[in-house]
């Protein structure tokens, strides 16, 4: 119940700060651009757009959210409230994943793309969003300004984005699937282009496990650096 309240509060906060409005605008712009792509390019372009923007929006926004809450003293109150760290972090992950899913579904639904596995699209967006939001929480723990945060996200982005090029295919490129972003992109491409069931299930299990690990790690970093300020 506490978690639900926290998620609801975060969603209201995001609404108030214009996240939904911004993503309506971003979706419209993507739809305009995508409508000009021929079908063969759209089949690659659409998953890449959904993966590169809505799915990673958590990384972009969570830093600002936590820094603002730190500045407003919300985190000091959190320490003495019944809300546990895991619930606080989970509420950020869930609420930002909600925006991601809405944007991903809107971009896909309104584009002229043929058949899509909506369940896989949902799972891949949620799992990708979770990983990137949790990364953002870990990065923000050591930052005092948004500019610091932006620059510190760059190495993480490179670490996650560059291996994605392995999907173009070269010897042993499958090994890169251990990197969560590559696994997530593989799953997302599968949602649009089709994927064997066993591969989809194993990717979902792997990404869920990675989300769990990132969550434990984020909790530790958050408690050490933000709550106890070690």
């Amino acid at each position: 119940m506490r978690l639900l309240h926290a998620v609801w509060t975060d969603m209201r906060f995001q609404w108030k700060h214009g996240f939904y409005l911004v993503y309506v605008l971003v979706t419209i712009i993507y739809l305009i651009i995508l409508s000009f792509l021929p079908n063969d390019i759209l089949s690659v372009g659409l998953p890449l757009v959904v993966f590169s923007d809505p799915s990673v929006l958590g990384l972009f926004f969570v830093g600002g959210i936590i820094m603002l809450e730190k500045m407003q003293g919300v985190l000091s109150v959190l320490v003495v409230s019944p809300l546990r760290t895991i619930e606080y972090i989970l509420s950020k992950v869930v609420s930002l994943a909600f925006v991601s899913v809405l944007a991903a579904f809107a971009i896909t639904g309104f584009s002229s793309y043929g058949s899509v596995s909506w369940l896989l699209l949902f799972l891949s967006t949620v799992l990708t969003s979770g990983i990137f939001t949790l990364c953002g929480i870990m990065i923000t723990a050591g930052c005092n300004t948004v500019n610091q945060y932006i620059i510190k996200t760059v190495p993480y982005m490179l670490l996650f984005v560059l291996p994605c090029f392995s999907l173009t295919g070269f010897p042993y490129s499958d090994l890169f699937t251990v990197i969560p972003s590559v696994a997530a992109l593989r799953l997302m491409l599968g949602a649009y282009m089709g994927i064997p069931l066993y591969e989809a299930i194993s990717l979902v299990i792997y990404l869920t496990g990675m989300n769990y690990l990132f969550m434990r790690w984020a909790i530790r970093v958050f408690e050490n650096k933000i709550i106890y300020q070690n």
Binding site: H17, L21, L25, I32, F61, G64, M67, L68
Partner: peptide, 17 residues
């Protein structure tokens, strides 16, 4: 605040279109 700033930055990038 910073969060609105980030939302603005995201929207402003759309102006590039």
């Amino acid at each position: 605040d910073k969060v609105k700033g980030l939302a603005f930055a995201k929207a402003i990038n759309s102006l590039t279109l």
